[in-house]
Design a protein around this nucleic acid. Sequence first.
RNA 1: CGGGGCGUAGCGCAGCCAGGUAGCGCACUUGAAUGGGGUUCAAGUGGUCGGAGGUUCAAAUCCUCUCGCCCCGACCA
Length: 492
Amino acid sequence: MRPLRGVGKPMAEKGVTPRSADYARWYTDVVQKAELADYSPVKGCMVIRPYGYTLWENIQAALDRRFKDTGHVNAYFPLFIPMSFLQKEAEHVQGFAPELAVVTVGGGKELDEPLVVRPTSETIIGHMYSQWIRSYRDLPVLINQWGNVVRWELRTRLFLRTTEFLWQEGHTAHATEQEALEETIRMLGVYADFAINEAAIPVIQGKKSQREKFAGAVDSYTIEAMMGNGWALQSGTSHFLGQNFARAFDITFLNQNNELDHAWTTSWGLSTRMVGAIIMTHGDDQGLVLPPRLAPLQAVIVPIWRKDAEQAAVRELAQRVFALLKAAGIRAKLDDRDELSAGFKFNDWEMRGVPLRIEIGPRDVEQNAVVLARRDVPGKEGKTFGVPVDGLAAAVDAMLTTIQANLLRRATAHRDANTHTVATYDEFKQALEDRGGFIRVHWAGTGEDEDRIKEETKATIRCFPFEKPEGEGVCFYTGRRTDQVAIFARAY
RNA sequence: CGGGGCGUAGCGCAGCCAGGUAGCGCACUUGAAUGGGGUUCAAGUGGUCGGAGGUUCAAAUCCUCUCGCCCCGACCA
């Protein structure tokens, strides 16, 4: 995962590889040229640069607010987990064993028991919960943690799959199955709300197949998003763990009837992968396009002048506009770098996805007005001339809201246009070949059927969507009648 | 781990076959002009040619070994 030396040529210095030419390359170009992240000297790891990290901080803030609103509190559990903990839940260890990083030496001495660098924290949190929970009065426990985890991945991609990544993991324990199930679905809903209303990414909520679920869960739920190339990206997951981890870690409590019972637990996580989702949902051939609500910078002011005589007045207005936007709580930047041309700055900020550009030149000074240029509508079409400085903050605010809505509308249209329904396996293969995207089908197959389809087409069941207006029908693969609907797609 | 490819300035590359002063573009620095969509000119800075060993008067170039990386095939938030 180092700079690709000598791979392909064009990389024409300016701009990014067009999506149509090479989508994977476009993605890497955007990440690096927009300075979201960089490669690290350690294979599979990445450095999140300030611009990318600010984006992540905005994601964190929007999620954290929602977690608090639903009664959760934050805590922190350690990075190192005794190896034996992982082994307590059979399916869990089997799922994670191949991708564990293990510490065997500490302080120059061989450790008695190897320590696993957490790939996720169900085990150590389960261990602690078993000590904290005695009575039904102690329940529910609603804790979230922000942290990092390590999974030794074979093939990595910036943000989408890295060996170490940042995320949050919620871990809750409940007295009843019903309550834990409700929590699982509630938090999935929180993720969906965040994705749609903050990231402007339309997502489909649904249940994972048994093949695709989290190792150790009874059921996993997901929000699935469609990327610009039609591939699916699992953008957040919520797991109903039943009593699996409670049994493995002795999380027991006395219920109201004075009977000892195992708690019901859930876990749910959303990671820096969300940054990748944002890039691939909204980005275009100019580069990044960020939703205003999460963008590190919502508006950038570019001053323009010809003669030195004009400079002072332009600068003065630019400063004034900057101040009034800041006062209105808009995340703005004044790009007064003297050594760069205005045209360069236009392209630069477009590549970095700033939702709104404010151009201020001598003509604007005369009118006491500015030019607004929308990132989501390229070229002159996206420009509004002569926007008065009086009331500008409100106009900018309104424009940002419009852009946010437009991004969601556009992404939803793209997803819907690339979602197809098929009735037979031949049609299925044809649709994947010709158009890609999401394929909705009736499904009554087995896990083995799922494996076979994956092998033959590389498409997997992304989820069984909650919303399935199609009702009962015939499974495209087995021909059996069923009311279950599945969405298949190629996935990251 | 199997197959393919690549290591020369921060990035992209040429030079290697036919050994002989280490080059080009971009970036960077300085200066001047320019400035409403990637501006131009000039002068500069920057390299143990991935590493080790060998052949040779002389190695980026030839030989041997070695390290690293990328791409494609078995896993995944």
